[in-house]
Nucleic acid binder design. Structure first.
Lengths: 193, 193
DNA sequence: ATTATAACTGAACGAACGTTCAGTTTCAAT
DNA sequence: ATTGAAACTGAACGTTCGTTCAGTTATAAT
């Protein structure tokens, strides 16, 4: 029907520029980046990129979406094998923050101390992302202050009220006596090697 | 000695703008953002922000660092209690991608299937970040293709050569017979609730 | 071979950009 | 009260910005 261009090739270049400079390129910079000789070519390409959801615009200003600024490449199944550098252009990327954080303004990162949740795969030294200001539901993992002590536990409820259950046979469930403050609920666990 | 301004208050405004617009504001936009009446005031502020490491500049163009674009607030110890909205300005933020990914161009995300590493806290359904093209060291966790099958194991070496050790008593260590391909080494484990 | 359409060139445009300068205000130390 | 330095105002500047237009080239279907 007409000329067809490879958007993924262009997004790879945008990604590369962003990683290097930490910002979106200007039209003039995109001339050399994409190998165009007319700014109108850039203009047209950006329109296509916007339609495809790679970029956004407001007030004539360009904003890259997380599909460009995301660092981590998605891999469906390992069975298919790891991509070679040649076919890396075909892989989509994801932004870890957008993936893990729902409400940035209410999310905190802290390090786990204690082994009360080891059977749930939360080990001492692990990092957890905690979201504040959410009402915990049963089976949620919460960071809670019970009787002046902070712990990580499963949030459960029974006829005695709130019950905080550890994931470690060494410890027993707690029924808060004097006070209970929920710091937040655990949204993600991260372990870095 | 002179007028002292609160940089953290300004960075909070920058952070807010970036979350909303997905890009850095222009000088004119910063006039209203910071409440200045002269662009020179913006110019001076940016100089201070650059010196403090919050922003970078190249070719007259502004680039926000991950100290601004990072979403997650750092929390030292839970014992100190969770910050209230009023004191949130005092908290520093971190960028999860920068924190977890060393070489973006070589890092892939995939989902764990199988329970060969449960005793190392890696459960089925967990997400791992795998870095390609790194020579594995003993005790590293690797994604490897042994005799046509992909698995996650500890990478070890003994007098018989490479030994792939699971973290599950149900399985035994493997000495690759026909072939061994290292897909990459596991840099991080993520579990999302 | 012709046609239709998308992608591109090249030039022009006003608007917005970031920087600079001289002068003023603000604040803390003396 | 005076001084010194940092923070700011207001205006001006050349540069670069993103957009637009008319025209050309490339590609795929007919």
């Amino acid at each position: 029907m007409s000329k067809a261009i490879n958007l993924q090739q262009k997004t790879a270049l945008l990604r590369q520029f962003f990683r290097l400079e930490g910002r979106a390129p200007s039209y003039t910079e995109m001339l050399t980046l994409f190998g165009y000789r007319s700014k109108n070519a850039v203009h047209g390409l950006l329109a296509r990129l916007q339609q495809a959801g790679y970029i956004r615009k407001n007030r004539g200003k360009l904003a890259l979406t997380t599909r460009i600024t995301g660092m981590v490449k998605l891999l469906g199944a390992v069975q298919a094998g790891f991509p070679s550098p040649a076919e890396e252009e075909l892989v989509d990327t994801i932004n870890l923050e957008e993936f893990l954080v729902r409400r940035p303004e209410a999310t905190y990162m802290l390090t786990v101390s204690g082994d009360s949740m080891v059977d749930a795969g939360i080990h001492p030294g692990d990092i957890i992302l905690v979201e504040k200001g959410v009402t915990p539901q049963p089976h949620d993992i919460v960071v809670a202050q019970v009787d002046d002590e902070w712990t990580i536990k499963y949030f459960e409820q029974d006829n005695q009220g709130v019950r905080l259950v550890p994931a470690n046979a060494k410890y027993k469930a707690i029924h808060p006596k004097r006070s209970l403050t929920i710091g937040g609920i655990v949204r993600a666990v991260i372990r870095k090697y």
